[in-house]
Nucleic acid binder design. Sequence first.
DNA 1: TATGAATGAGCTTTCATTCAT
DNA 2: AATGAATGAAAGCTCATTCAT
Lengths: 228, 228, 228, 228
Amino acid sequence: MLKEEVMLRRHKAEESSPWAPFEDRRRARDEKREAVLRMAVQMFLDEGYHRATLNEVAARLNITKPALYNYFRSKEEILIECYRLGQDMFEASIAASERENGDGLDRLRRLIRAYAGVMMTDFGMCLVRLDDRELSSEARARVRKAKRTYDAAFRTTIAEGVADGSIRPRDAKLATLVITGSLNWIGQWYRPDGELSPAAIADEFALRLTEGFSARRPRSKKSEQTRR
Amino acid sequence: MLKEEVMLRRHKAEESSPWAPFEDRRRARDEKREAVLRMAVQMFLDEGYHRATLNEVAARLNITKPALYNYFRSKEEILIECYRLGQDMFEASIAASERENGDGLDRLRRLIRAYAGVMMTDFGMCLVRLDDRELSSEARARVRKAKRTYDAAFRTTIAEGVADGSIRPRDAKLATLVITGSLNWIGQWYRPDGELSPAAIADEFALRLTEGFSARRPRSKKSEQTRR
Amino acid sequence: MLKEEVMLRRHKAEESSPWAPFEDRRRARDEKREAVLRMAVQMFLDEGYHRATLNEVAARLNITKPALYNYFRSKEEILIECYRLGQDMFEASIAASERENGDGLDRLRRLIRAYAGVMMTDFGMCLVRLDDRELSSEARARVRKAKRTYDAAFRTTIAEGVADGSIRPRDAKLATLVITGSLNWIGQWYRPDGELSPAAIADEFALRLTEGFSARRPRSKKSEQTRR
Amino acid sequence: MLKEEVMLRRHKAEESSPWAPFEDRRRARDEKREAVLRMAVQMFLDEGYHRATLNEVAARLNITKPALYNYFRSKEEILIECYRLGQDMFEASIAASERENGDGLDRLRRLIRAYAGVMMTDFGMCLVRLDDRELSSEARARVRKAKRTYDAAFRTTIAEGVADGSIRPRDAKLATLVITGSLNWIGQWYRPDGELSPAAIADEFALRLTEGFSARRPRSKKSEQTRR
DNA sequence: TATGAATGAGCTTTCATTCAT
DNA sequence: AATGAATGAAAGCTCATTCAT
């Protein structure tokens, strides 16, 4: 399955082109479709959606532009599929993180790790790096709805943590924005050839976003509010 | 001056066009230049740089496309100026936050508030919402260098807080990514017509990013490391 | 008068701008008109008519583009005036050369010298360096008619030389093309800062075009015709 | 090959368009490329480079403007190719004229005929009719270098003729200018539908430029110099 | 299935010219 | 007489998409 593959670190898509010259040109249609998506997502991320031309995508796959139209009806459909793969990964990952037990704080940390892990894959970072305004309004609406469900998972989990006492009571909406912002931004800076492994990064974010950086005792809720 | 203006919440640029029909058409050249920038930055943010056409920018200002060339040499120059205004704001804001005293943690919180404040202005959010790959390589290099100095301000402040004991020792680089990611992402969701004021948002981020959300005592450094 | 001036070697038109800052800005209208023409012809020759923009012409004269429209109705009118000045020079020069006596050969040589002399002035070389297709059809017709009269002067003189025995009988039309081509091309390579003076060049052309370069006795008309 | 074709008189390019409607639209890519060049060079010569629009070139070939970009990367590349074809012709022609024997005068006459012959083809006259300032500086430098080599061929041949006594001693540089000017100007007036054949014209120029028109004995070198 | 070729729509940019002051 | 500002027209170029083979 494609999903497992893309969870791995990005590999050079060029090397795995099913159209590589002198190679067996007969493979399953789905394999080729996936190869197109893998190449396309890399170029969309590297160059930006509108600067990544289908000509160039095709050229890197050793095929020609019209051949792409055998697998996708339009450039937008390729983009939609990239989003969909990312969405699938986020949804699977979030669902998995929710299947385990623990108090709200534990579950929030697992959720953070799960979300961060997907954010460090090509298709995962699509959701935050690519501009969904390139999509038609219907497709854009679906993508945005999906994104909202991920935010909702965070908000719900935080609320549950507040309820069970493992998370200090805060505005759950703002808390969600603090946490998801930090996680979404990973897609902007993460490079697979960096020093830290995705797992190490995910762990660190899970801790820091919950424990903070202060060495001081947290102020009481009351004292906080008197600050301004 | 423009800087003060743009610090305010976004106002509908249409209403303040110096070319509004039936209005006095003689105003200072700089005012018009600024009006172009205010309109352009809104359109760049709303539509994306390449979908925002100069025709549309001009039309909303009640002028025609070539008239823009009286003030800017190219579309890219408009973009560069948007970035520059944002950079000026970040630099002034960061510098101001560094002029006050306090331990590292206090200064980190002030820096967060300062940075977040700019991130909620049109020109400030340019730096994180617009794609700097649209720029020529020289301009892009300048923008990226500027961004790195903002990150460096966070990293330095964190390191100072660790040194003076106000911040728990962590990897300063990752801590910076956690914090700046959360702040940068503000540019993606902030809307001036939201419920919370920019100041309230900035304060909340300053607290949450330093104190975290956990109600539990932070683990010792040692126990953390044994986790994996 | 302008005509005398332009017969001289090109001088830096910048230095003689009647709008030079800090100078008396009140001079006769004709002087300014001439200054525009001198600057324009240099730019037309240096850059080519369509690459020489009125903005640049005006800027070098320390005025603005619309100011040019006080003196000329259009860019084309400037071009027309450049042609006209060149035509005046050619016509005066040819007429002068025809006022003196001598046999056909002598008069041909004088005509060559006269024509070559004008060809080494800015306005003179306009007629061969600038593209008269930039002109409206009426203006173009006038220019082409003028050019034909210069050719006719050569053809007539040659015919007279043949009649009086000073010029060997040749096809007068082709002879004219040989001679005027060589002279017209001067406008393409002549530079006022070259080694040879215009007079020296004119003399040399007058001799070489009539005596040729062969050291052998010319073949008889008959033997020539058997060549092919 | 294209070279042979273009040596012939210009034929109406419209009639030979590979895109002529209702014709077989499948021909070799090179044929189409050449057809574009033939049409383009005619329009460049007829209208001037910048007035000849790609729209018009394409329309006359029964295609649309962007289709031209299948064969050329830019309008300038089309121009460069026109120059290159002309250069190839000049170089082949000059080289051929130098392979035969004879004294300097004979060789000069052959060179004149060869050069004049190319000057009466569309691609040949490109070099003198089109403005090489339209080219980028690199391409322009190459074209000007090529032109200088043609001049050098004349100068060298003249010098050899002086050395072997077949050409009267003159300033070789000015002699070259006299001769090449006359030849270059052919490109300005030659029309393929004229009375004289290119060969007849070339022969006449070869004779007249070497023998001159004077019926008198040439003056001695000494007397010449006392003239001024 | 795959391709070479072609297209249509759209964009930025340039510049002579005009207008209001 | 002179100017800053604005405009209209037009050009080159790009690219997703389609078509005939």
